[in-house]
Amino acid sequence: MEEVQTDEGYTTFHDGIKSCLPTVLGYLGIGFSFGIVGINSHLNLFEITLMSAIVYGGSSQFVMCGLLLANTSITGIVMTVFLVNLRHLLMSMTASPHFREESLLSNISIGSLLTDESFAVFSTTVAQEKHFSLRWMEGLNVTAYITWIVATFLGGLVGNFISNPEQFGLDFALTAMFAGLFLTQFEWELSKSMKKSISVVLTVTISLIILLYFFSSSVAVIISALLGCFVGGLLHDK
């Protein structure tokens, strides 16, 4: 593929930081909540910050705290984390073809820092048919990563004084962020094909509710997302 000119606002590392800003508040809210929950799960400040730095997966980290409190075995925890975070495989498969021309090291660095939120911002950019650079993606990823670690640390600092971040509605930052990101993506898809996007959303909704009865929620999310892709792909040329 020839070198494509990137669009304004999607070129430099700094542009990537700017694209990340709308999600920063969400990361702060969730990271801060995680810090508090972590401390109240008898982990220390160093352990929770390290967890955010090397696991870097919001929902899985909350799950880990719950399992640690329940004295689950090491293998049990690691296997659960694997399932909770397995959805990244699908997101990486979707994002990676856009970076084929970049070096292996750059590819690994982008994959390492891919999150639900950075993937959503990236996908909206793709849906808007904007041309972006590697530096832009790095700016987006690194900003999110640093915010997450800092928020965890800050939450950990106050964790001894607050035991229940839920009373402040902080845990809802996750739902609110997913709602905003989903609606942005939905709007773009609707403008392209109303029938297809509504079919995909209905498929995911119905199948997820049914699957939640049979599987753990992380597995249900993966299967229902695949079913959504399947329906979207089948309707593709019609």
């Binding site: 993506q185 995909v200 997302a225 695949l226 959504g228 892709c229 792909g233 593709h236």
Partner: peptide, 25 residues
């Protein structure tokens, strides 16, 4: 690639709903 084109919409929808429902197998 064709099927994965619908992943962003699908997975965001699923992740949002996952936080809405209280689920136990």
């Amino acid at each position: 690639t064709r099927f994965l084109e619908y992943l962003p919409l699908s997975i965001l929808c699923a992740l949002l709903l996952e936080t809405v429902f209280s689920a136990k197998t």
